[in-house]
Structure formats: C-alpha cells, structure tokens
C-alpha cells in the first residue's frame, strides 16, 4: 500500500491488555492544572521500567470539570489492577496533592476501583473531612495552602497498551517533523495517551539482550547506523526512525489513534522525506491485540 508516496508496510502493532484509570486534575489556572498533570504522569513511559504508563489525555474546559475550574484528564495504565492500585495513590500523593491549588477527581466509573482520597486522607492526620453527596464520597484534606479536595476513588477500565507506529524517514529532522505532526493529530483522539517524551520514542526496543538481566535492548533491526552489521528492516534511503507508542482505553481508541497518526504522516508524504510507516511486533505470539496498518488505513 502506497499513500502519497509513503509505503504502508504489511505489518502490525502487537499490543497487550492493561488496566487503566482516568483522573481529572483541576487547579485555579490552566497552568497549574497542567503542571500537576504533567508531574504526575512523568517518568511513566514504559511499564517495564516505570511501573506504569501515563500521559495527558486532554485539556478539560472548566465547564466540564467537577469543580468548575480548568482541568486536565490523564490516563494511567498498569499491567494489572494490583499494579495500578499501587501507583495511582503514590503519584497523586506526591505530584497532585503537593501541587498548588490542585484537586483530583475520578474520571471514570465501573470496573475495579483505585484509591484516591481513600488512601490520601491519612495525610490529614485526623483533620480530614469526608462528605457524601449524590452517592459519592469526597475528601477534604487540610494543607498549608488551604484544602486538597479529591474523590474517594476512581473506576478502572480494561485497556490496551503498546499500540505503535514507526516512521521511517530520510533524515533525522524529517523523521522528527513527521513524528511531531503525527503526535499533534493523535493527541486529539480521546481515550488514548502517548506515554513517551512528547509522544515520541527515538529508542524503540526489542525483547531481550545479549546481556544477562536486560529485558529489552536497542532494536538493531531499525537502527540506521547498524545496517552494515546486522539484518535491517530499513531501505537504503532511510536514515532515521521515530516510534510513537499508544495506550488506550479500548482497541477501538488505539485503532483510531493509529489511523490519525498515519494520516498526518501520509499528508506530509514522500516529498517531506517520509519513506514508510511500519509497526513493532513480536511475531504475533505475545500480545493478543494486533493493529494491522493496512486494515486500519483501508
């Protein structure tokens, strides 16, 4: 499949089940809502090294937030509910509770639950106050700045982690420009996050390593400087590859996000140095979700 001179390879992204939750973080100003959101989703690029994958889903207008202040929706995913239950209160406690003027609310219902105020209330040292309204419990935790308000807990969803596309381009600059265009489009798809820095991974990995104890190592098949030394997936004109990893609340969301990204890259086309779109997988035997690029773009 060739679209605007860009080859859509007959490949697929192999993704895995994850458990996720959505939180709505608010603050007095958009700046501080985003600060809290970015902080609490920091160091959450890969579940292997960070314990979770997290990112900003979208900016939430004040009219839509539980307290009428500017908000940001974040998604956090872990490999299982136990892992999610561990990381969510920790991240809220260290990154949102501490952030000036912030409040934190459940962004979804249903499924198993993860603690927000249920765990953080103890910071109040006995001065915390619970309030039940409309069948929901909220907590007020006195802090030096005033009060930290949060929901008791949030629901969870069975999501998908590890959707991805690889952008093969003729130079590093062109690969980055294409990746940025893709990220801009993909960030508009609700229900998804791109957990890596700025949404982009420049160091895609393969499973395993020659070194004992390393779970993952550089994906030499896509490293342009290694094409003379290892088998390669890169045609001669490709000098740089960028990857975009997608986690979503459903396969449909990941699929829509994948398509949005590919469309944005294809719009740049071969004229802007994009040679091909590929995807990372493990042969199809590890992950139950297969996002076939050509089917998505059909």
């Amino acid at each position: 499949m060739i679209l605007n001179g860009v080859e859509i390879r007959d490949s697929f992204a192999e993704a895995f089940p994850m458990v996720g939750t959505r939180l709505i973080i608010t603050a007095d100003t958009p700046r501080w809502a985003m600060t809290a959101a970015k902080t609490m989703t920091g160091f959450a690029t890969s579940v292997i090294g960070c314990g979770c994958e997290a990112g900003v889903e979208r900016v939430v207008p004040a009219e839509e937030t539980p307290d009428g202040r500017p908000g940001v929706a974040v998604l956090i995913f872990a490999m299982d509910i136990k892992g999610l239950k561990a990381v969510v209160p920790l991240r809220i406690g260290q990154c949102v509770l501490t952030s000036p003027t912030s409040a934190c609310f459940a962004g979804m219902t249903g499924g198993d639950t993860v603690s927000i105020g249920k765990a953080l209330r103890y910071f109040g040292d006995g001065w915390q106050i619970a309030k039940n309204v409309d069948g929901r419990r909220i907590w007020r935790i006195p802090v030096m700045e005033g009060e930290f308000v949060c929901d008791h807990e949030s629901g969870t969803v069975s999501g998908v982690g590890g959707g991805n596309i690889l952008i093969l381009a003729t130079s590093r600059g062109e690969a980055l420009a294409a990746a940025e265009a893709a990220v801009d489009a993909m960030e508009k798809v609700e229900g998804c996050i791109l957990p890596f820095p700025g949404g982009v991974v420049r160091s895609g990995s393969k499973v395993g390593s020659k070194y004992k104890g390393m779970f993952a190592s550089t994906n030499n098949f896509y490293c342009p400087t290694l094409r003379a030394q290892t088998p390669t997936q890169l045609p001669p004109e490709v000098a740089s590859v960028m990857e975009i990893v997608i986690d979503g609340v459903s396969p449909e969301a990941v699929s829509a996000c994948t398509r949005a990204g590919i469309e944005a890259v294809v719009a740049l086309g071969r004229a802007k140095g994009v040679v091909a779109i590929d995807a990372g997988n493990y042969g199809g035997n590890l992950g139950p979700f297969h996002f076939k690029l050509r089917e998505i773009m059909a």
Partner: peptide
C-alpha cells in the same frame, strides 16, 4: 473566611445545595 474548592464541587453535585 476561605476560598473552598469544596463549595464548587457541592453545587455541581447537589441541585439542592
């Protein structure tokens, strides 16, 4: 006297309040 985020939440979750 205080600016309480709680108040903003209550009026959005309780029509009566």
């Amino acid at each position: 006297e205080h600016d309480l985020v709680l108040l903003r939440v209550l009026v959005r979750r309780s029509a009566e309040l």
